[in-house]
Design a binder for these strands. Structure first.
Length: 427
RNA sequence: GGAGAGAUGGCCGAGUGGUCGAAGGCGCAGCACUGGAAAUGCUGUAUAGGGGCAACUCUAUCGAGGGUUCGAAUCCCUCUCUCUCCGCCA
């Protein structure tokens, strides 16, 4: 959520920021509304002050022995009633306007950071650095062919159970998924992250706090009867973990790592990535999440990104870091690095982690502050996947494959998986 | 799902119509005392918004919303949540 004060005092700054995202919006209306609201609030404040002093006067007089039904008191009473009526009228207008303003502001995305490269879409993203040697060979197979050959998953039966874009893992597939989750959690907790296992169902307030609502209700599965939603990412419960809190300065930075299943409706992605483990309605993810003092958020963004990269390095998976341009940023982000893993079977780099700095955008929606001296300041929040587990498995299968049908696993995974290779099951 | 109890500041807890943003305690911070600490004493310690260079000041907030009243933490209505017992259950 954007700062309403900033909208009043410097709407150009916001309009320019949003323009770089490709959003043309006339903030004048909003600015006028906000100013009008402030005006009404001031009027109401004055009236309420008058009303309060009348109330005190009545109390005072009665204590001094003036009869409650005397003319003097009656006069004050009617004065008080008039004020009360005016206040009620103002409140009605005030409520209406403030609701309008809030509804609008909640649909506005974050403004990009100054460093964020300006551009229209993903073509303007910038490759920052690369790691590892991407294998380029026409003989490499897609991960779903490998997975099927090895008996790791069954997509057809998954449709029987639920529908398309769900997957059921078997044998070494299931085991590998579990190994990856444990491996990632250990890697991060060893660096001092606090492990969290949050609820998979979250309420509307939580989704609003992190930015998924009100704008992207199409993207999440909903349980109508209970007004709960399936988490699209652990970012949602992790943000709300500290909603409406003032975090003591000495507790910052807070660094969480959470495994969670993630559920996404993938509305509007018909026909894209229909096979394999890339785009599913349900997938597993290990998420990194930081709460930091605003002064430290830039550095924190570099660090959280490196922490995510460390997973790819440990798994010996070639990747590149791409900085998203303004037009490609997610709703809550002010700056984002995507980690893209190399998939030799698909002959492409694929997003496996997204590392975002949200500044105070989510903190304002969630009212998460820290006490800095005498004043309370909104914290900054950051999130990064560390990593998307299904896509990691896809990358391991494609990168580790060999012509004899086996898949070599990275050394780091052996203690977790219990073997250094995936072999075709003898039937 | 059925029955009952409750929701007050960081925490505990008092307050049943007026000067209550709220006693008291704990905690926390500062100062004094000490070689240092403990103990003790003193002072301070909610959030949001508005005005003022500032000292400061105004408004709102005692789970949420509505009502009665000149005036509500306190009375009335609705909702939500929490706890206890019973039932069911991994």
């Amino acid at each position: 959520m954007l700062d309403q004060r900033l909208i009043r005092e410097n709407p150009k700054l916001i309009a320019d920021g949003l323009k770089n995202r490709g959003i043309e919006i006339d903030l004048e209306q909003l600015q006028l509304k906000s100013e009008r609201l402030k005006d009404i609030e001031q009027q109401r404040n004055k009236l309420q002050a008058q009303g309060n002093s009348i109330g005190k006067e009545v109390g005072q007089k009665i204590r001094e022995g003036v009869k409650p039904n005397s003319n003097e008191i009656d006069l004050l009473r009617s004065k008080g009633n008039k004020i009360k009526q005016k206040v009620a009228e103002l409140e009605e207008v005030e409520k209406e306007i403030s609701e309008e303003i809030k509804n609008t502001i909640l649909t506005l995305p974050n403004i990009p950071n100054k460093e964020c490269p300006i551009g229209k879409d993903e073509k303007n993203n910038i490759v920052i650095r690369s790691w590892g040697e991407p294998i380029k060979s026409k003989d490499y197979k897609d991960h779903w062919s490998i997975a099927e050959d090895l008996g790791l998953l069954d997509t057809q039966r998954s449709v029987r159970i639920s529908k398309s874009r769900f997957v059921t893992l078997f044998n070494e597939g299931a085991r590998l998924e579990r190994a990856l989750i444990n491996f990632m959690l250990d890697l991060h907790t060893n660096k001092g992250y606090t492990e969290v296992l949050p609820p998979a169902l979250v309420n509307t307030a939580s989704l609003t706090a992190s930015g998924q609502l009100p704008k992207f209700s199409d993207e999440s599965f909903r349980c109508i009867e209970d007004d709960l939603w399936l988490t699209p990412t652990a970012e949602v419960p992790l943000t709300s973990l500290h909603r409406e809190e003032i975090i003591p300065l000495k507790n910052l930075p807070i660094r969480y790592v959470a495994y969670s299943p993630c559920f996404r409706r993938e509305a509007g992605s018909y026909g894209r990535d229909t096979r394999g483990l890339i785009r599913l309605h349900q997938f597993n993810k290990v998420e990194l999440y930081w709460f930091v003092h605003p002064e430290n958020s830039r550095k924190a963004h570099e660090q959280i990104t490196k922490d995510a990269e460390d997973v790819l390095k440990a798994l010996e998976l070639p990747y590149r870091v791409v900085e998203l341009c303004t037009g490609d940023l997610g709703f809550s982000a002010s700056r984002t690095y995507d980690l893209e893993v190399w998939l030799p079977g698909a002959e492409t780099f694929r997003e496996i982690s997204s590392s975002s700095l949200c500044n105070d955008f989510q903190a304002r929606r969630s009212s998460i502050r820290t006490k800095d001296g005498k004043t309370n300041v909104l914290v900054h929040t950051l999130n990064a996947s560390g990593l998307a587990v299904g896509r990691t498995m896809a990358a391991l299968l494609e990168n580790g494959q060999s012509s004899d049908g086996t898949v070599a696993l990275p050394k780091a995974l052996v203690p977790y998986f219990g073997a250094s290779k995936l072999k075709p099951q003898s039937k």
